[in-house]
């Protein structure tokens, strides 16, 4: 194959110029997802009120929607009303020219919330029943039980899967090119425009993603080890 490693470097530089876009899109939506997804999971697990039924219907539906559709939908859902309003209000006119990254953030946050709520639901069920019973027998209220006993343990179980989630977000963020946002992958491709060196561009972007994801993986591993002190595990070894 005509492969020229010297072309990886310019592609790498091009890719790194849009690194902040990928990082912002993934990490901000992850945080939003965690903040909103945990209450959703708690509500669903404990059949709190009518909200848990509503969510029980809504989340499985939203889970099935591909990220690309979220991005496209929000693009038009946010911009169309603004376009209509801009004839009357100047602020709408300014808003509708906003940087598309905000649309990307909203779309990815929704997708992240759905994804993470499922992760937390799975983590909550892996905390053994005995824990809940022990809490109530000692007289803790439901909130105290959650905050002091259950959630910390659930986070230990959730950590590896949350790692998966954030890595999915990082890699999935490249879909935002459909509304014209430039991230690492697409920026690397621009360097191949003139000379068609696509393989080198893909390899450059793969290196960037790998470093980011491996770092996240490492951090996740450390957190898991720290939190798991004192929690007995099965599985041998």
């Amino acid at each position: 194959m005509t492969f020229d490693a010297s072309y990886i470097w310019p592609s790498l530089i091009a890719a790194l110029q849009c690194l902040h876009v990928t990082l912002i899109l993934s990490f901000v939506s992850f945080c939003v997802g965690l903040l909103l997804g945990t209450p959703v999971a708690v509500s669903r697990k404990f059949h709190a009120t009518w909200t848990s039924y509503a969510l029980g219907v809504l989340i499985p539906i939203l889970k099935g929607v591909p990220l690309v559709l979220y991005v496209l939908m929000f693009n038009f859902a946010i911009l169309k009303p603004l376009d209509a309003l801009s004839e009357y209000y100047a602020w709408a006119d300014g808003l509708r020219r906003m940087d598309k990254i905000y649309i990307g953030l909203v779309a990815m946050s929704v997708s992240a919330t759905v994804m993470i709520s499922e992760t937390m639901r799975s983590a909550l069920s892996s905390v053994s029943e005995g824990q809940y019973e022990a809490c109530f027998s000692v007289g803790l209220t439901k909130w105290q039980a959650l905050r002091r006993v259950v959630l910390p343990q659930a986070m230990v179980f959730a950590a590896p899967v949350l790692c998966n989630n954030i890595i999915s977000l990082i890699k999935g963020s490249s879909i935002v090119f459909v509304v014209g946002i430039m991230d690492v992958l697409n920026s690397a491709k621009t360097s191949a425009q003139i000379n068609y060196r696509f393989l080198e561009a893909y390899i450059a972007s793969a290196l960037v993603y790998w470093v980011i994801c491996a770092t996240v993986g490492r951090i996740g591993w450390f957190l898991e080890k720290r939190q798991a002190r004192g929690v007995a595990k099965a599985g041998g070894a």
Binding site: F177, V179, G180
Partner: peptide
Amino acid sequence: INFDGANQVVYDNIVNDR
């Protein structure tokens, strides 16, 4: 330079002054 995406998005962008 703005790199475009889906056809409908590009058309929408130009027609709506983005």
